[in-house]
């Protein structure tokens, strides 16, 4: 009897030990790879005082980078939201030939390196590219100008919304829509009263991730930007430029904007997850 309880107590404490060791490892890992770098960004940014921090953020080139990033996200996110919903709807609710090809195509931006994504646009729209001569004859600038940056961002952020929605929509099936149809709902009513309420948290989640990536994208944008100061630099590119000019404090100050965006995204994401679980 006595020995039994001792043995039980032993296994419990052993399990407790195991639990804490695992938690400890996870926390140490997170601290080393996420928390410390995050703290480093802010401490470097504020190293020379809060005034210099704000000076770095309000300097004209920084403001223009922030503006360009906001414009890019303001176009890329809604466009990809609409396309994402349409694509996910088509894939989840209908069966048709070549569906798997469509799913694979949606995944391409995840699969290829962003640098390649950028190069594709240069090869298409650059002077030596397929459409280059036509664009130049009509004085339309795409690469090395704002449209190219928006296109590249659209490309790399395309899968976020669709990928988030496809499994949710597939899981829900078409039963509710069919019921709605029998009760006389038209297509729009069906979408806004049945489909959209069902996917809203997944959609919001996809939009948040899409936005974070749109603002933080470096590789693809770097290829098509041309790096003209104050004109075609987004926040990530501006950080690189400042860093390369030995302007480390300013570089980290601007980088801290992206870090704040990341933290904000995480908070939003947990709120969305919590809300959707509650329902």
């Amino acid at each position: 009897m006595n020995t039994k309880t001792i043995a039980q107590a032993n296994t419990v404490s052993l399990q407790g030990l195991k639990k804490w060791v695992l938690i400890g490892i996870a926390l140490a890992f997170l601290g080393l790879f996420i928390v410390i770098p995050l703290i480093a960004v802010f401490s470097e940014a504020l190293k020379k005082g809060i005034e210099l921090y704000f000076a770095a953020l309000t300097e004209p080139d920084a403001l223009s980078a922030i503006k360009l990033t906001l414009i890019t996200a303001a176009i890329a996110v809604p466009v990809n939201t609409v396309f994402g919903v349409i694509a996910a709807y088509a894939i989840a609710k209908f069966s048709f030939r070549g569906k798997n090809i469509l799913v694979t195509l949606i995944d391409i931006p995840f699969a290829v390196s962003p640098v390649i994504a950028g190069l594709v646009f240069v090869l298409l729209f650059g002077s030596q590219g397929l459409l280059g001569p036509f664009l130049e004859a009509n004085d339309i600038k795409i690469v090395f100008a704002v449209p190219g940056i928006i296109l590249a961002t659209l490309f790399v952020t395309f899968p976020f919304v669709a990928r988030e929605l496809i499994p949710i929509m597939q899981e829900q099936g078409t039963d509710e829509e069919q019921a709605g149809r029998i009760l006389g709902a038209n297509g729009w009513q069906m979408f806004f009263r049945i489909t959209l309420p069902n996917i809203k948290w997944g959609l919001l989640y996809g939009v948040i991730l899409c936005n974070a990536r749109a603002m933080g994208e470096f590789g693809a944008v770097s290829v098509v930007s041309g790096h003209i100061r104050g004109m075609t630099n987004t926040i990530p590119l501006h950080v690189e430029i400042l860093y390369n000019e030995y302007n480390f404090t300013a570089a980290f100050a601007v980088a801290s904007l992206l870090a704040i965006l990341a933290l904000f995204t995480l908070v939003l994401k947990s709120v969305v997850e919590w809300k959707s679980r509650k329902e």
Binding site: G126, S127, Q128, K141, V143, F144, R229, N244
Partner: peptide
């Protein structure tokens, strides 16, 4: 005067590809 800086070869390539 607007400035763009990068590796010389990369910059040359960008101008060839249409950097104005």
């Amino acid at each position: 005067i607007n400035q763009s800086h990068g590796g010389s070869g990369t910059q040359s390539r960008s101008v060839i590809d249409g950097l104005d």
